[in-house]
Design a protein around this nucleic acid. Structure first.
Lengths: 328, 328
DNA sequence: CGTTAGCACTCGTAAAATTATAGTGCTAGG
DNA sequence: CCTAGCACTATAATTTTACGAGTGCTAACG
């Protein structure tokens, strides 16, 4: 259990370190507290024993440990309102009611990335549990046409299809059949449904059924949900803790890896959650702050990724604001 | 004018440097030539006077200058066939005829990036001179619908539209009007045509015409052609010339800047073109090799971006292969 | 006359030595 | 319990030294 003063010192150290990225000395702390540097040193030694602080070398100042950040986040951080400037910039985006929600979200995360110098991630709701809403087919020329698939939650995906020597009529018949028979099917189940329910029927009504069936089968199995957006990767290059090219490389590779990013949305908690260092799967030296949002048919996950030495209060207040705006 | 031997030495130096990224000594060259290191040194001095070579310091070996690369590319490079391994990997992609062209291109540039450790860029044909082919509207729920726009060249774009208190019937009427009146209009001219030709007519037939008109107007003016794909940015992190975080940052910022990338496709030449260092607008330390491709309704630009110290022969042969595959 | 052996010279890199300094830990006295 | 004071330590910055890779030039050679 920490005393009030110990908590105070920890808080000051975290906040100092967030700003300066340099080990904090007892001297710089004692100025803000009415006690001597020696006293602070004693307390620091205590906090280090409790694994809340670390030294970079024997005679250096202290930096927060992972556990230290955790303690800060859990007990010391104050959840205040956003500062006026941040507020202004974000409000503008949402108060322009013309924009559809997705655009607002994208824009605001872009803005947040620019303001904070952290990277942001937007994970659209994975469409795997979406239901098929409608299929449209637009012929482009003699041998190519565009198949457009729309889901009940508004996801749209299109795919080019190559169809030599197949009459437009046959295609339209097939689309008609699909629209009649498998609307409302979950995206994931379409392939099987296509095979067992549609294939036999197409055979009866359509002449070139083999080719056509294959073409549509491909269209659906390729239904990837490419709705991940990582904004401001380059911001990492501005942070002193990522000044080594190797470090940058490992982080960028994670940010390019869909599987890693999808992991972020696995947690079902709807509140804002913070994953510090080893708690996330991107890198031991970063923190991920995420929240889910849900609004009518739109849902997804927002995340901000930066150094562990992150301005937690600011980021949390921003995420909270956006979540609130989106959800009403 | 260079002698045969001078050209030989320049060629060897470029190719050596491409492999090793270290200044080349007279010794390492004379082994491959039947003459002494002193002779090579004399020739090197000559090539340096001609601004084809540079020294990193007074007593270092030589590296090619920008002009040196240019000379190599213009006069010394041999345009041979791809090596067997490269060939194999790329052929697989194109010989699977099932895949639509765009997928083949994307995949092959991904593969090239992995094989060469350079970044690749795919610039889809800017859709600005496409013609409107068709509009589809899919209602998602009471207040939202998806507008899908398809152009004659197969570009698809969709946009969510928020429409409270407007009947589906009115929407369908409007879409009908648009489909009847402005099909075939170049994308760029749609906004004006919408204003002067459609607006008055909608007014006559549709009750909530003001709101509806505005909604559609927004959809069209936002028609951005987001068909730029940069693959393998992180490959830069593997190249020794980009070991400084600052350098990386400036390059990544350029690669994220649509305007910079669009510049690449401005050149109308259909052949493979090489822009070394200052000749391109990405960075003095990179080379861009690009080609346009055209195939029926698909067209665009492919580019490979890497250090000036690039394996020119290999990259050119790969690009040539892809261009050929795409164009038939 | 082009080529080459030989040698002095240069510069960069790496390791070792030096200095300065910012910070700690601990002790002893208030 | 707090704090002044001092010995101690690691780093960072600078200098020193040593070495080697590579050049340029000269003079001799075929």
């Amino acid at each position: 259990m920490l005393t009030k003063r110990q908590e105070n010192i920890l808080k000051l150290i975290v906040e100092h370190y967030v700003k300066l990225a340099k080990p904090i000395s007892s001297n710089s702390i004692c100025k803000k507290l009415k006690c001597s540097s020696a006293t602070v040193r004693n307390e620091m030694a205590f906090l280090e024993d409790a694994n809340l602080l670390e030294k970079t070398h024997t005679s250096s100042g202290r930096i927060p440990s992972e556990k230290g950040y955790r303690y800060y986040v859990d007990h010391l951080m104050e959840l205040k309102k956003m500062n006026a400037e941040d507020m202004l910039k974000l409000q503008i985006i949402f108060h322009n009611n013309q924009l559809p929600l997705t655009d607002c979200i994208n824009k605001s995360l872009q803005v947040i990335s620019d303001m904070t110098s952290y990277a942001t991630i937007i994970l659209g709701s994975s469409s795997h549990n979406n239901l098929l809403k409608q299929i449209e087919v637009v012929p482009i020329n003699d041998s190519n046409l565009i198949v457009i698939i729309v889901t009940d939650k508004g996801h749209v995906q299109h795919k080019e299809m190559k169809l030599d020597n197949i009459s437009l009529e046959d295609i339209k018949k097939t689309v008609g059949l699909i629209n009649n028979l498998i609307i409302g099917t979950p995206i994931d189940e379409i392939s099987t449904k296509l095979e067992y329910e549609i294939k036999p029927i197409i055979g009866r009504y359509v002449t070139e059924h083999e080719k056509l069936y294959n073409a549509f089968y491909n269209v659906f199995t390729d239904f990837t949900t490419n709705d991940i957006n990582v904004v401001g990767r380059t911001k990492f290059l501005e942070q002193p803790e990522f000044s080594s090219v190797d470090k940058i490389k490992t982080i960028f590779e994670k940010l390019d890896d869909e599987n890693v990013l999808r992991e972020i949305e696995k947690d079902d908690d709807n509140n804002i959650k913070i994953y510090i260092g080893k708690e996330n799967n991107i890198d031991d030296d970063v923190t991920v702050i995420k929240t889910k949002f849900k609004n009518g048919h739109e849902e997804g996950t927002l995340a901000i990724v930066g150094p562990k030495r992150m301005d937690y209060e600011r980021v949390v207040s921003m995420l909270e604001f956006i979540k609130d705006q989106v959800e009403d």
